[in-house]
Design a protein around this nucleic acid. Structure first.
Lengths: 150, 150
DNA sequence: TTGGCTGCAAATCTTTTGCAGTTCG
DNA sequence: CGAACTGCAAAAGATTTGCAGCCAA
């Protein structure tokens, strides 16, 4: 699922204007971090993002990455997901539709999938309980064909 | 959803025999922790379980609770769930059918639900990708009627 | 007896925060 | 200029681990 430059630029723009609207400053570090985050196009941990960002600007600190990620989540451009391990992963919400995760408990490989039927059932359940849905997280754990295959 | 003593005893027995099979010792601390865990019948954090266990035996240490919970998860009698915050929650898998969670992001209330249709779709998706499913976790976040209601 | 447990405290690990200096607007 | 940001290091919080003594089998 390659991310086009066009899309990245678009989202960058959106983040930037939203930041301005909130009186949040646009620093060079944030530029680098957001850019690397969007370009990755995949779910990645704060630590992995820090590594990527440091390839561009080696002085960037971990705290700044965390602060920026939290900002992105708040703005609604990133989402935090739990993919098993101890640390959270983040992923860009570009123009992509919502998707869930299928995780191999042996090798850690993550397959993304979408399912309209599940989304619909969820909506129905939430309605039944009178909730207003915000977001959800579906993670299926199992063994992938490679790890299982004899 | 009250938990009957009968059920607790049954599960205790199962845990105990499984422990024996694995050459795992059955100590008094484990007895207390497992008992309190099963009696709670609800999802609770390691910390909450520690508190409960200490009401029975005030000398029990946090590490023992963690070690026991991990053991229970391994044996397949408990499952670890993420209900938002920083810490994991655990819940007993008794004779109960699998269920998922609907979580209020305002007050933290957790509603459990089951949905046959979702389970079926999941099975289909997993099969399509050639995975062998082990378990899954579906958490829906939203605002409950009480918090939303004017 | 003896290897697996236990509690404690120290160690890890991820994420947040305080602070003094820096920089965007 | 001044408030918001940054990196660093320390703090915080959850969970794990090392160790010396303890105890179930």
């Amino acid at each position: 699922m390659p991310v086009t430059n066009q899309l990245v630029i678009e989202v960058q723009e959106r983040v930037r204007s939203e930041a301005k609207r909130r009186g949040v400053r646009w620093t060079n570090q944030r530029q680098v971090i957001v850019e690397q985050f969007l370009l990755s196009g995949e779910h990645l941990t704060a630590d992995a993002l820090l590594a990527r960002a440091r390839e561009v600007d080696s002085a960037i600190g971990a705290a700044t990455v965390y602060r920026t990620l939290n900002l992105l989540v708040e703005i609604g451009v990133a989402s935090r997901v739990r993919l098993g391990g101890d640390s959270a992963s983040f992923e860009p919400i570009l123009g992509r539709t919502h998707h869930d995760h299928l995780i191999c408990i042996s090798c850690g490989r993550v397959v993304e999938f979408e399912d309209e039927a599940i989304e619909k059932r969820q909506a129905a359940i939430v309605k039944k309980h009178g909730f207003q849905i915000r977001h959800h997280r579906l993670e299926i754990f199992g063994v992938c064909p490679v790890c299982a295959g004899g």
